[in-house]
Structures are given as structure tokens and as C-alpha cells.
């Protein structure tokens, strides 16, 4: 039995896959696969970092709990992807999260965007969740069994994130005059960063059937967006897309601050165990 098969039997999509399990894997991803895992892991990590801020600040206590659940799911995905990526270079999830410099991160600009008000956070959640759902629901068929297994757990969780954001898009879009204005503003602030999600990179060619080609997700994403926004009586913002560059390590101005906060303690005590 080949090594790839061995891990495929150990990690089955039906079981809850934990980062701790991935750390014990004998298989090491190749460099391209690890780079790809960084993309997905960094997106989830930075999003979780942003969402974590809401806990104790949400519009209602029930929503504190809901946003915390989403943040916890994302941090779980981040840990799994980063642990797997780190296997390629003998680095742990924490080495990667806490001791990489800004240009070494691979997150997209979208997840780096500020929380703003609740409508802006929901707009960002809406885009991320729809995108991640399209992505993970295809990544479950990856020829890399570990990525497929991570995606299999993640897609179920992200399905709920999708639902959560849609419920709020409907309510804010059709609630009061104020909420409608805020929702429209939130979507408008978010939309420039949509395009980057669907930009192909040379890495995708290298990956073959390990990864999912971002450009192929655009049409189903747009279709899903249309359905929801139409129901909420909202329109897709007509704003120019931003060029992005996160996958190449060229980030928004926000990431530096995010990492400063994320990494401050770990870097103050390099080599320490927590």
C-alpha cells in the first residue's frame, strides 16, 4: 500500500479531523501542495482573527455566540491547513502563524478588511462563506487525501456560515431604512476584494487535480450571490475590482497591524512553549 493510500484510510472524510491528527501524518506534502495549503490556511487564520474581535461586542448576546462559533470553525480550518503545510518544511502551525513575516503570508485582501459595522462584517462573511463553500465542495475531490479530508469537514461548517450570512443579508437588507443603507454600504466596501478570490496563479497549474482552479468558482459564486441579493432586494455593487496580490505576499495595509497583534506575545518570547 502506498503512503498516500495509508493516510487516506486513516483520515476519512466522515470523521472529525483534528490538526493534532494531521501533525502525526507520515506523509509530507510537496512544496506546491504546501504553498496551496498556506493560501487556504492563511485566509482562515486572518478571518478568524478578525471575527474574534466581535466576541463580547456583537449586537446581541446570541450573536456573540454565533460569531464565536464561526471564528472557532475558521481557526480549526486554519490549524489543519497550516499544520499540513508545515509538514513540508518541518514547521509547526505556530511556527507558520507566529514567525512568518508579512510578505510570507498568502491571505487574500478580503479577509484582511476591517470589521467595520455589523453590516460590513456580514458582507465580508457572505462573500467568504459563499466562496469557501464553492471551493471546499470541490476540494473534497482533491487527489491529495489530506486536503480532501480537511475540506470534507470544512465544507459542512462553511455551509452553516453561508446560511448565517444569508439570514443576516435578508434581514439587514429588508429590515429598516438604516439597516438597508448600512447593508448596501457594507457590500460596496467589500466588493472590490471579490475579484482576487477568483484569480488564477501559476501555482494552480502546478497543482493539477490537487487544487481547485479559482477562476472556475466565479460563475457558481455569482449565481449564488444573485439569488440571495435578489431575495434581499439588493444589488451587486458596481465597483472596480482591486488587483489584490495576497497570494504573492503583497497585502493590504491592514495585515501588518493584524500580525502585530497576532504575533506580539509569541515573538516577545521566541522559543517559548505555551
Amino acid at each position: 500500500m502506498s503512503e498516500a493510500n495509508a493516510s487516506a484510510t486513516r483520515i476519512t472524510p466522515g470523521n472529525a479531523l483534528r490538526p493534532e491528527d494531521i501533525a502525526l501524518l507520515e506523509t509530507k506534502p510537496g512544496d506546491a501542495v504546501a504553498q496551496y495549503a498556506l493560501w487556504l490556511g492563511d485566509d482562515a487564520l486572518i478571518l478568524a482573527q478578525r471575527l474574534g474581535w466581535w466576541i463580547s461586542r456583537a449586537p446581541e448576546l446570541e450573536e456573540d455566540v454565533a460569531l464565536a462559533n464561526i471564528a472557532l470553525d475558521q481557526i480549526g480550518h486554519a490549524r489543519s491547513f497550516l499544520t499540513y503545510a508545515g509538514r513540508a518544511w518541518d514547521r509547526t502551525e505556530d511556527d507558520l502563524a507566529y514567525f512568518r513575516r508579512e510578505p510570507e503570508f498568502r491571505s487574500v485582501h478580503l479577509v484582511e478588511q476591517p470589521n467595520g459595522d455589523f453590516a460590513r462584517t456580514i458582507a465580508r462573511q457572505f462573500v467568504v462563506a459563499l466562496y469557501q463553500w464553492e471551493l471546499y465542495s470541490r476540494l473534497v475531490d482533491s487527489s491529495d487525501p489530506t486536503l480532501a479530508a480537511i475540506a470534507a469537514k470544512a465544507v459542512k461548517e462553511v455551509d452553516y456560515h453561508r446560511d448565517h450570512s444569508i439570514q443576516w443579508i435578508l434581514r439587514l437588507g429588508q429590515g429598516t431604512e438604516e439597516s438597508r443603507h448600512r447593508m448596501i454600504a457594507g457590500l460596496k466596501l467589500t466588493w472590490p476584494y471579490v475579484e482576487e478570490l477568483f484569480t488564477d496563479h501559476p501555482l494552480v497549474d502546478e497543482l493539477g487535480d490537487v487544487g481547485v482552479r479559482p477562476s472556475t468558482l466565479r460563475a457558481p459564486f455569482d449565481a449564488a450571490v444573485q439569488v440571495v441579493l435578489a431575495e434581499a432586494d439588493l444589488e451587486v455593487p458596481q465597483v472596480p475590482g482591486s488587483v489584490g496580490g495576497g497570494r504573492l505576499g503583497r497585502h493590504s495595509e491592514h495585515l501588518g497591524y493584524i500580525l502585530a497583534e497576532l504575533q506580539v506575545l509569541a515573538r516577545e518570547y521566541p522559543g517559548a512553549s505555551w
Binding site: 446570541e62 455566540v65 454565533a66 462559533n69 434581514r171
Partner: peptide
Amino acid sequence: SLHAPDAEMAVRNARDLYTR
């Protein structure tokens, strides 16, 4: 129990609060 604006949100809040 919990508070929610409507039934759809109530069942979601219940999921988040009571089945963690």
C-alpha cells in the same frame, strides 16, 4: 430559552447556544 427575532433565527441561535 433564548431570544430571537423570528423562528428561523431562533432555531439557529438554539443550535449555536444549546448544541456547542
